[in-house]
Simulated scan of single mutants.
Amino acid sequence: MDLEAAEQAAAQFLKSLGVSTDSESLRGTPGRMARAYAELFSPRAFDLTTFPNDEGYDELVLARSLPVRSVCEHHLLPFVGTAHVGYLPGERILGLSKLARVVEHFACRPQVQERLTKQIAEWLQTHLEPKGVGVVIEAEHTCMTLRGVQAVGSTTVTSTLLGLLRHDARSRSEFLGLSGVAR
């Protein structure tokens, strides 16, 4: 990551839009912009921590309302919301904080919500090998609320269901009900 080049590009971008950075309050804006986007595009490292499912736990594990923040890849404007991530354990269970870390990992890049939802679910399916995975993301896209149609207050909901959470109606219903999506 080249923050100096990003700052110069941000300054040129603002200048091209007719925004002067000559005032005291705007002088540091190109640097702040560069650092802000660098932060948005930099996930924290994490190690996947799994444990043997010694008790044979076979019920749903669900983390609700995990914060999501990403940047729309079409406009580079933020979208924010919550993710509900669950799985039906197989041979291993997951350290619960890792569900939030996986969400953060895939959200820290220019993204579309549909792909983000699928990436989280598929990553968990591949690395955990559970009997089922469910991911629902509800987010407000500022590219839709602040510009264009200006649909203030609107949210977009996406879901990916794998394994039993996709194919077994009772498991799917339980996941969607506990996640608060099926009202």
Rank of each mutant, 00 (worst) to 15 (best):
M1K: 11
E4G: 03
E4I: 09
A10G: 04
Q12P: 00
K15N: 10
S16N: 14
V19K: 13
S20R: 04
D22W: 00
E24W: 04
E24T: 09
S25P: 05
L26A: 12
G31V: 02
F46S: 05
D47V: 14
T49Y: 03
F51V: 09
N53Y: 07
N53G: 12
E59K: 15
A63C: 11
R64W: 11
V68I: 14
R69A: 12
R69Y: 11
S70T: 11
V71R: 01
V71E: 01
C72M: 13
C72T: 14
C72V: 10
V80C: 08
P89D: 03
G90K: 05
R92G: 00
L94W: 05
V103W: 01
F106P: 00
R109D: 02
L116F: 04
L116E: 00
I120H: 01
A121Y: 13
E122D: 15
W123R: 13
H127E: 15
L128V: 09
E129N: 06
G132P: 10
G134Q: 03
V135G: 03
V136D: 02
E138W: 06
E140S: 11
H141W: 02
H141Q: 07
T142I: 04
T142R: 08
M144Q: 10
M144R: 06
T145C: 03
Q150H: 13
T155V: 12
V157Q: 12
T158K: 06
T160A: 14
L165F: 05
R166W: 01
R166Y: 01
S171F: 08
R172I: 07
S173F: 06
S173A: 15
E174V: 14
L178R: 14
S179V: 08
